[in-house]
């Protein structure tokens, strides 16, 4: 199965640079980006916000039977990352899966997310690497 090229292209800024949004009224941050603040509602003012990507592992699991497009990467860890600047984000944690632990600090790294076979597009984006 391949990922639609236009779909991937639309998500590029999020995937490459962690561009989410924040509400200027209450300072809540959103990723993936929301265009409406659920707390402030009509009084909310949404603007783009770039996350640094630094944070810690809130939870994770190890994928050993991967979906199409990810088979060559098993075993790999997928985690929920609690970002320092607020909100949590799910993503792949690179490297040796035996080293991944809850609470460990992570930093963003730019990697291949998936590739559509030998002739298709290569999709890139941010993953996370353990610090230290």
């Amino acid at each position: 199965m391949v990922e639609s090229v236009p779909l991937s292209w639309r998500l590029q800024r999020q995937r490459y640079n962690l561009i989410g949004t924040r509400c200027a009224t209450c300072d809540e941050r959103f990723f993936p980006p929301r265009n409406f603040c659920p707390s402030c509602r009509r009084k909310g003012k949404i603007e783009p916000f770039q996350f640094s990507g630094r944070g810690s592992v809130e939870s994770f699991t190890v994928i050993r039977v991967a979906p199409s497009g990810f088979e060559s990467q098993t075993p790999y860890a997928v985690g929920i990352i609690k970002l320092d600047e607020g909100t949590s984000i799910s993503g792949q944690i690179v490297g040796d899966v035996t080293r991944v632990e809850m609470g460990k600090r992570v930093r963003p790294v730019f990697r291949r997310i998936r590739e559509d076979g030998k002739e298709g597009v290569i999709h890139y984006g941010v993953k996370w690497a353990l610090e230290g």
Binding site: S72, V109, F110, R112, I113, I122
Partner: peptide, 16 residues
């Protein structure tokens, strides 16, 4: 390189 690293990902990290 790791299985998800290539010239592009290396260039981005060095560029940063």
């Amino acid at each position: 390189p790791d299985k998800d690293e290539d010239t592009i990902t290396i260039a981005v990290e060095a560029g940063k």
